[in-house]
Design a protein around this nucleic acid. Structure first.
Lengths: 196, 196
DNA sequence: ACCTGAACACCGTTCAAGT
DNA sequence: ACCTGAACACCGTTCAAGT
């Protein structure tokens, strides 16, 4: 019986189990509270076991960030497929809600302490040219980093302001509607009027 | 001779020495790289000595944040006294430049992991009513946390975007001028047009 | 190939003891 | 009153050894 419980870890899915447990701990305790030994304990494995799958704590954090960017990109790329009446507003809303729903993961994704060994997998907007969807029309690649060419900057700023509690949402307010309105206004004005 | 070197620490300025050294290490290594034992070593004192002056690492971090807010507030309050032609632009520029010049301290000041035991000393805009300067005309107290009532939110967002590298400044660009222009535009439009 | 156990050099924190 | 030395329970990381 104990064999059936431990069996999966001998079948190659310890890496996934570690990542899943790590995501939960990260969101509950924050990055500082995510210890490699705690993680190994949570998954029921020895303290040294994670080192078969990750080069160390920094590598684990980067792997978490990469899965974060994958989920984030997937969520953003799903929006145009639904043909919403206001595409920009819908994508901005998804952007901000992802940040609020995955606060610590989002913070980690944009943390300056990330090693970013797998650079292109740790960036938004995605740099690959293979996906010709609405994103490429809106998103500009890294090199052209002029403020004018970064329409997502405003939305990112809004997300961070909400995360930092710098913009507080009053009790009883319709969070989603408020965010949608702010995002809509920001994105509409951004290219037309504002230099950011 | 060794007496003259160690003497200051017996005269009551170990606390200040710790804070000064901590600020340097924080800016060089980031919050994660600021260890209590490293700090004690850097100041030439035993590992237990800091505990006479701070309740622990969290308390030291909060003390750092408090001095950060003090310096920040002082810098901001100095602007109106100089009677600049465009007060808002000047204050916004000071805000953003402080963030860039004290990146890790600024991040710590708004970090969600801050204990904030001394709550009013860990906030911007300052909550005290004692200083009737231009700030009180612009800054709104915490309770009224509506997006509309937070003109500093946009500037804070810009600061974080620059810190995160989400808005990159191209090589050869006039950083100060660029920031000043963005800040000026943001602050002017904020109360009039935008809901943030 | 994948995991364990024990070890190493560290932490933050506490506490008796020194001056 | 302020600091030291030694100790405690932890870390992240490494490495021989197990299966």
């Amino acid at each position: 019986m104990s064999t059936s419980i431990n069996a999966p870890y001998h079948h190659g899915n310890l890496r996934r189990a570690l990542l899943e447990a790590a995501l939960i701990i990260l969101e509950r305790e924050g990055e500082a509270g995510l210890g490699l030994r705690d993680l190994a304990r949570a998954v029921g494995v020895s303290a040294a076991a994670p080192y078969r799958h990750f080069d160390g704590r920094a590598a684990l954090l980067e792997a978490l960030a990469v899965t974060g960017f994958q989920r984030f990109t997937a969520a953003m790329e799903a929006i145009p497929l639904a043909n919403p009446p206001d595409l920009m507003a819908a994508m901005g809303k998804t952007y901000v809600l992802f940040a609020l729903d995955n606060a610590n993961l989002f913070r980690l994704m944009f943390s300056p302490q990330l090693k970013r060994t797998a650079a292109p997998a740790c960036a938004w907007p995605p740099t690959r040219r293979s996906k010709p969807c609405a994103i490429s029309a809106v998103a500009t690649p890294r090199p052209a980093a002029s403020p004018r060419s970064r329409p997502w900057a405003r939305v990112h700023g809004l997300a961070v302001l909400l995360l930092d509690g710098q913009i507080a949402i009053r009790a009883g307010e319709d969070t989603e509607a408020l965010i949608a309105e702010i995002v809509r206004t920001s994105l509409r004005l951004a290219p037309a009027i504002l230099p950011v």
